[in-house]
Design a protein around this nucleic acid. Structure first.
Length: 295
DNA sequence: AACCAGGTCTCGA
DNA sequence: TCGAGACCTGGT
């Protein structure tokens, strides 16, 4: 067999490097990070490595005892930024309240990091995500990638706003998006036409970010919080989905509305409430999927 | 085969 | 302002 791997070709092997564990504060657990329901475009290869696209480049990452193995044309700085290796995870853990279930979730998923996602990918993903389960979100994202997306170094990836804006609602429904089809179109058109500058929302105040995002059809408070937390640096944002709502109502049974629940979560969980939320969410969802598993 | 899913929108009180 | 229903579809 001839291994004719050409640098840059689809089968080409990207340069590899290791980001040593000691070179960033706190642990990193790839499995928890990439399978915790914050991102839907990564796949796990048979060898256990994860494959995705970051900043328009393909990337393969693997968990190693000595750190994070990376195969990509991306710079190390880009990878560090994406995986939020600048976050001092132990300090974030210390900021959490002494809540036994939260402590259990942290113990179990230690090393779960929020990602610094591209705002467009994040917004598109969570408009797709409304009221459906994670496997289906991944399926819809894959369908959009294959139908309208571009291939990034051999890997299918989500379409640009411009490309998606040219889609028809009927075709999007055929791809299985259901009633999300017009919402996805509205989002794509606003971004493509420059009426919604997602990148410019970085650094803007939380209330302004949420209000701006909610102008899009299909983006309510919860989806806006997801975008704010996962791609716009608002670690205080607490997306309240059905799982998190159950958890919050155990502590505050009298709270009903979304603003009340999210506000309670922020005061209870502290400045990194969004981080804590992700541990609670992941714990709840995995617990439901695998009911019998001793701690 | 029901029941549920990282909700949002509309509408009537 | 608040609660109730409708809503596409596929996983489990």
């Amino acid at each position: 067999m001839v291994s004719a791997s050409v640098e840059g070709g689809p089968a080409g092997r990207a340069p590899g490097f290791v980001i040593p564990s000691g070179s960033f504060p706190g642990p990193l657990d790839l499995e928890s990070t990439l399978a915790s329901g914050q991102v839907f475009t990564w796949d796990q290869a048979p060898d256990g490595c994860w494959e995705g696209v970051v900043e328009g480049r393909a990337i393969r990452v693997g968990q190693r005892a000595d750190g994070l193995l990376v195969e990509s044309k991306l710079s190390e700085a880009s990878v560090r930024r994406y995986f939020r290796l600048d976050d001092d995870l132990e300090a974030i853990y210390r900021s959490f309240p002494p809540d036994p279930p939260l402590k259990a979730a942290v113990r179990r998923y230690r090393g779960l990091r929020l990602l610094r996602q591209d705002p467009w990918e994040c917004a598109l993903s969570f408009v797709l995500a409304t009221f459906c389960n994670v496997p289906r979100i991944r399926r819809m994202a894959r369908a959009l990638s294959l139908e309208y997306g571009e291939t990034v170094e051999g890997r299918p990836y989500l379409p640009s706003p411009e490309r998606l804006a040219s889609a028809t609602e009927a075709r999007l429904r055929e791809l299985g998006l259901g009633y999300r089809a017009p919402n996805v179109l509205d989002l794509a058109r606003r971004v493509a036409e420059g009426h919604l500058a997602l990148g410019a929302l970085r650094g803007r105040p939380y209330d302004e970010v949420v209000a701006t995002l909610m102008e899009v059809r299909g983006i309510g408070r919860k989806v806006a919080d997801c975008i704010a937390l996962f791609s716009l640096e608002h670690m205080e944002a607490v997306p309240v989905d059905v799982w998190v709502e159950r958890i919050l109502k155990l502590r505050a049974p009298d709270l009903r509305s979304y603003p009340e629940l999210a506000g309670f979560a922020r005061s209870w969980l502290g400045p990194f409430a969004g981080y804590a939320q992700q541990y609670l969410y992941h714990q709840a969802r995995m617990g439901a999927a695998e009911p019998c598993r001793g701690a």
